[in-house]
Design a protein around this nucleic acid. Structure first.
Length: 699
DNA sequence: CGGTTGCACTTTTTT
DNA sequence: AGTGCAACCG
């Protein structure tokens, strides 16, 4: 086995530089993942480093999974769950560390992880407790300020000291109350995972020493997107040998709004003196035309490193820019173009991605794809684990795992409806906190509380169910069995059957959740996975066009990419107009990231008008279009090409449809090809027919 | 207590 | 335009 095979000189050098600090500046499409994978493979196979001695941080769970897969096949290893235990996202790794050592700083082993919704709910609760009106102070704004404070490593007391303005003082109060409530619930929010890990390493030198000894090699991917807490964690983890390798590209830093600070990558050489720097500048992904246009855009930024990506694949078809009248036409243009390429069989659906700035833009695109009958999938948007029915079931599970989890309880107290209203819930919670017992015990004993009889009976039932389920967990029953027990006992499926059109889909989702859960041995593992699962981590359909935001597209590539909504106010987004110039530069990087996802074909579109918040706006073409230069070809307005028969020209039949032909009788559609269908007739025989000539009709 | 209706607000991006 | 939340009524 030759681990260096198929690598260029710079990549080889990166793989073989295994001691001391190493900075890999990897441009878009320069084989970064491959280099990292081979570097880890080299450490394990050639230098006898034990997989558990390598700490490898990726940006998403999906990236970790991919790397684990590639690594195990490179090493000829079987890919079991425990292989490369310390490869994952910062958040995932922090959860593991806190599960093992968190008790040393007072973190319960069975902590639950609060997502954005839980955090918002808890903030609202805290505001209610403090009688702060959510009319004057918006919970979302409070959430953002608290998150920012945490990222700046300001604890509630420290934040209170720095608070000057009335708003900040109010937020400070809410922050204190929020932290208190969260602590009582035995929960940590996303930011806590990082901040508390940092505190653990800071306050417990022995524990810090243990991990520093264990991790002989540290690798960090997407280093330009690390925030302060993550940076400090890394600093603690690196030992005297300083075997740290970071990979990144300041041109692709698009998460500063989340606290990411790309000066971390610019300062690496200062932080780790004597660091070796390797630049990966050969692009293996895109054609010259695409790369040139992208380069023209990114070089208009001032605050950046200087580099020049190059490719052997010079030329290629020029980037096409399309103008449309409105967003519906734009969506039809995209879906239509894709549909015809699929019909011509020059490409398959999974070759395409459609990228947009905001999730709201996906709506009209979806409709166009449905109309064109092109299979598509949306990455992000409403995540599977964000669906109501899934959250309900997860809330039961969380409450079993952490009987103090007040947010989960509040969610399911009256789901399915069992006559427990807001008033009863409030009374119950007040009583239980005065008693100082956990929620499950309180449910069992709620007869003592003096709440209305109907509510008491229901609550007691819930208590019994939770207690039984907890016993199952103790007996090492699979999470899927626990879920089935709960939904059967509380009759959750019956609750979902409310006669709405979505009922079936919801039942299916529950089924999918149960099969997911069956893959896990313990409830805790399942809950952690669910909490940290991101929108881009989900399993993808095999053959469908991918629709997603520019942010979600980071790290991916597609033969053909459509970027839509290249308008002032969309990309760049209007929110950056009154912000710092840095924000505009980040929008430009976002544009660059989108363009460099394309391998062979890049289409960009903008619309003269667009419906936003229910009103029609007329936006100027994006300034980034002007930056792209002359390797771009402007296509005539789509409206001119579009004829009135557009709607009628849509293939009205689908596979499995029953159709009637005046000539051949009734049959079933077995294949669709442009405006023709292949029909298997009941009386025997298969024919390919043009739908207009054959006068086919649905039956 | 629960369901329905009407209003207000939304949208930047997400671990 | 769609959704979530609040107030109101049964």
């Amino acid at each position: 086995m030759d681990i260096l095979e198929g690598l260029n000189d710079a990549q080889k050098s990166a793989v073989e530089t295994t001691s001391g600090p190493l900075l890999i500046l990897a441009g878009a499409g320069s084989g970064k993942t491959k280099t990292l994978t081979h570097r880890i493979g080299h450490l394990i196979a050639k230098q006898g480093v034990w997989p558990n001695e390598i700490l490898a941080v990726t940006f998403t769970n999906k990236a970790a999974r991919e790397m684990r897969d590639r690594l195990s096949s490179l090493l000829g290893q079987s890919n079991d769950r425990r292989f490369m235990n310390w490869m994952g996202t910062f958040h995932g790794i922090c959860v593991k560390l806190l599960k093992i050592d968190g008790e040393a700083i007072g973190i319960a082993r069975n902590f639950v992880i609060y997502d954005e919704d839980d955090r918002l709910g808890l903030i609202k609760k805290a505001m209610k407790t403090l009688s702060v009106s959510d009319k004057q102070v918006k919970p979302r704004a409070v959430s953002a300020v608290i998150s920012k404070a945490k990222n700046d490593l300001l604890r509630p007391d420290e934040f209170t000291e720095t608070a000057n303005y009335p708003f900040q003082k109010t937020v400070a109060e809410i922050y204190v109350e929020y932290e208190r409530e969260k602590q009582q619930a035995g929960a940590l929010d996303f930011d806590d995972l990082l901040v508390e890990t940092l505190r653990l390493l800071k306050e417990r030198p022995k524990i810090r020493a243990k991990w520093r000894t264990q991790f002989k090699h540290i690798l960090i991917d997407e280093y330009q997107d690390t925030n302060t807490a993550q940076y400090r964690i890394i600093k603690y983890m690196v030992n005297e040998k300083r075997n740290i390798c970071v990979v990144g590209d300041d041109w692709q830093s698009i998460y500063s709004w989340r606290g990411a600070d790309f000066t971390n990558i610019l300062n690496f050489e200062r932080d780790f003196e004597g660091a070796k720097v390797i630049k990966l500048e050969q692009n293996y992904r895109s054609t010259g035309a695409i790369l040139d246009a992208a380069h023209q855009v990114i070089t208009k930024n001032n605050n950046r490193t200087d580099k020049k990506l190059w490719t052997n694949a010079i030329g290629g078809s020029p980037v096409e820019v399309h103008q449309t009248h409105d967003e519906i036409e734009e969506s039809r243009l995209v879906a239509g173009r894709i549909a015809s390429q699929i019909t011509l069989r020059t490409r398959k659906p999974s070759d395409f991605a459609v990228l947009y700035r905001t999730n709201a833009q996906s709506y009209t695109l979806e409709r166009a794809f449905l109309q064109e009958r092109v299979p598509y999938q949306i990455v992000g948007g409403v995540r599977f684990y964000d669906r109501k029915e899934i959250k309900d079931v997860i809330s039961y599970l969380r409450l079993i795992h952490q009987p103090s989890d007040i947010m989960s309880f509040s969610r399911i107290a009256n789901i399915p409806s069992r006559g427990v209203g807001v008033v009863s819930v409030e009374k119950f919670l007040a009583w239980r906190s005065q008693k100082g017992i956990d929620i499950v015990e309180a449910l069992e004993r709620c007869r003592e509380s003096g709440i209305a009889t109907r509510a008491v009976n229901s609550l007691q039932q819930v208590g019994i169910v939770l207690r039984e389920a907890a016993k199952m967990v103790e007996q090492q029953k699979s999470p899927s069995e626990v879920i089935e027990y709960i939904i059967d006992t509380v009759q959750y499926k019956e609750y979902l059957q409310d006669g709405t059109p979505q009922a079936d889909e919801r039942l299916e989702n529950i089924g999918a959740l149960i099969s997911d859960a069956a893959l896990f041995t313990g409830l805790a593992e399942f809950l952690d996975e669910v909490a940290l699962m991101s929108s881009v981590d989900l399993n993808t359909k095999n053959d469908a066009v991918t629709l997603m935001t520019l942010h979600a597209a980071k790290g991916l590539e597609f033969p053909a990419v459509f970027m839509v909504g290249l308008e002032e106010g969309i990309l760049p987004h209007s929110r950056v107009y009154d912000g710092a110039p840095d924000d505009l530069e980040e929008e430009r990087r976002l544009c660059y990231v989108g363009m460099t996802r394309a391998r062979e074909e890049l289409h960009i579109s903008y619309s003269t008008s667009r419906l936003q918040f229910g009103t029609r706006n007329y936006n100027m073409p994006s300034r980034f279009l002007e930056d792209m230069g002359h390797n771009v070809s402007y296509i005539d307005s789509y409206a001119k090409q579009q004829d009135s028969s557009f709607d009628e020209a849509v293939m009205p039949f689908d596979i499995n449809d029953r159709v009637r032909s005046p000539q051949f009788g009734v049959g079933e559609v077995v294949d669709v090809d442009g405006m023709a269908v292949t029909v298997q007739f009941d009386r025997g025989g298969t024919r390919k027919l043009d739908i207009e000539n054959a006068q086919l009709a649905l039956c």
